[in-house]
Design a binder for these strands. Structure first.
Lengths: 235, 235
DNA sequence: CCTGACGCAATTGTATACAATAATCTCTCA
DNA sequence: TGAGAGATTATTGTATACAATTGCGTCAGG
């Protein structure tokens, strides 16, 4: 992370995810270079990486812009993700070890702890969630699957709203993880796949509902919508 | 394609696919730059692209090598591809238009023509095959799916052996395409998905059989193995 | 008022020099 | 002889200058 191109990557990515650089804005290499305190060379590097993650789009004439995500795009990404993570769960069920199962239990225990208090610790929740899903991917043992999913999990529209939260929804996510653990313990690939797919698709619909609620009225960000968005971020 | 980085990309890619740069060989930027007649800058660009396509792998210290594909890796890639292309076929079935259907028929007609003669035109076959699958992807209408599949279709081990051929196997591939067209004409997504998945998985097993035959004895490249490899390349 | 061509400004592409880092070699000492 | 420290070489990372391309505004002609 000490290389200039890594710093540029992290900085630009943050600016996009935080909304400082909203969708559609042009990303000039020189301007970014100045902002990041490096030269254009590492910025170009960073832009290529972000382009592969689809956070940045390029025109046919090589100009870069912050990618715009339509609701259809989000749907598309979730559909793919539901399929790929479902597949990962199926693979993992057939290769699950006692150690990995313990890791999963530990990650979900961390989640339980994060949501137990009155004011849930969303950061800890997301971290536990990340660990949980990463552990499954690792057991699945497909390098390609990891690479392909990496491009799908980073959704600006998600992260920008990820710090809202709703206790009930977070608890449901924990509970689905518990069910996944049960499926893994029984090495039931079909079951694990079904749970995982539905886990992801439910998240999509929670997002879509929140999106509708939010776009209906500008100030209509009520509790229900916030909760839904939180579920989304939490998978 | 006139930009230097594009020329470098094409040149390096060719050297890998043709076997001139065998798996495991280190790819020094300077050496490649000289070989391609450009400076290191566009070579770096090209290497990043090839890395994303998994034709090139990098160590933790940023040195590039031609990627090595184990049989397990190939299996992994085919499994994913069977799933993703099957999904694409399902989507496409629900959105198929008369125009696109005509395109598919035309592409498969080109394939029929390529394999009709005594000495099949493998180049024309592969091109028709590419058109066929690309048309399906286009109808499926998922940008992400296109991007993800792109990383899976280029397999060095496949292309290096793609110029072997076996008439019977090529004809079977054509025939499966015809069946896909029938499924699309009836807008039967489940059918189309099943055919496509089996289409890809059969290709994998043809490849695996050929691989075993070839590694059993160095000079054991008999007709059956050649035919199998050809099917593989043809999806 | 519209259209298109022209030229200037902005942006990206490439080459090159130099800095930083990793790999390799060698020599010494145990 | 083997291991490790240090020097040497090879390789990659970064900055900068310049070339090529694209975008955009302006102005002339209809």
């Amino acid at each position: 992370m000490s290389r200039a191109s890594d710093r540029a990557y992290a900085a630009i990515r943050n600016m996009i995810l935080s909304g400082e650089l909203p969708p559609g804005v042009q990303l000039g290499e020189e301007a970014l270079a100045e902002k990041c305190g490096v030269s254009r060379t590492p910025v170009r590097d960073a832009l290529r990486r972000l382009e592969n993650e689809m956070l940045v789009a390029r025109t046919d004439t090589q100009r870069s812009f912050v990618a715009e995500w339509s609701l259809d795009d989000v749907r598309d990404a979730f559909d793919l993700r539901a399929m790929l993570e479902g597949y990962a769960a199926r693979l993992a069920a057939g290769r699950m070890t006692a150690d990995s199962l313990a890791q999963l239990r530990s990650a979900n225990a961390q989640i339980a702890q994060a949501i137990a208090r009155q004011q849930p610790d969303v950061g800890a929740f997301l971290e536990g969630n990340r660990l949980f899903h990463a552990a499954i991917l690792e057991v699945a043992g497909s390098r390609r699957l990891v690479a392909q999913l990496a491009a799908l999990v980073e959704q600006p529209v998600v992260w920008r709203t990820a710090h809202h939260y709703g206790p009930a929804a977070l608890h449901r996510s924990w509970s689905e993880h518990e069910e996944l653990i049960a499926a893994f313990a029984r090495r039931d690939g079909a079951w694990a796949e079904a749970i995982m797919s539905s886990h992801i698709m439910r998240a999509y619909h929670a997002y879509a509902d929140a999106h509708r609620a939010l776009s209906a009225g500008p100030g209509a960000a009520n509790d229900a919508a916030d909760a839904a968005i939180a579920v989304e971020a939490a998978e």
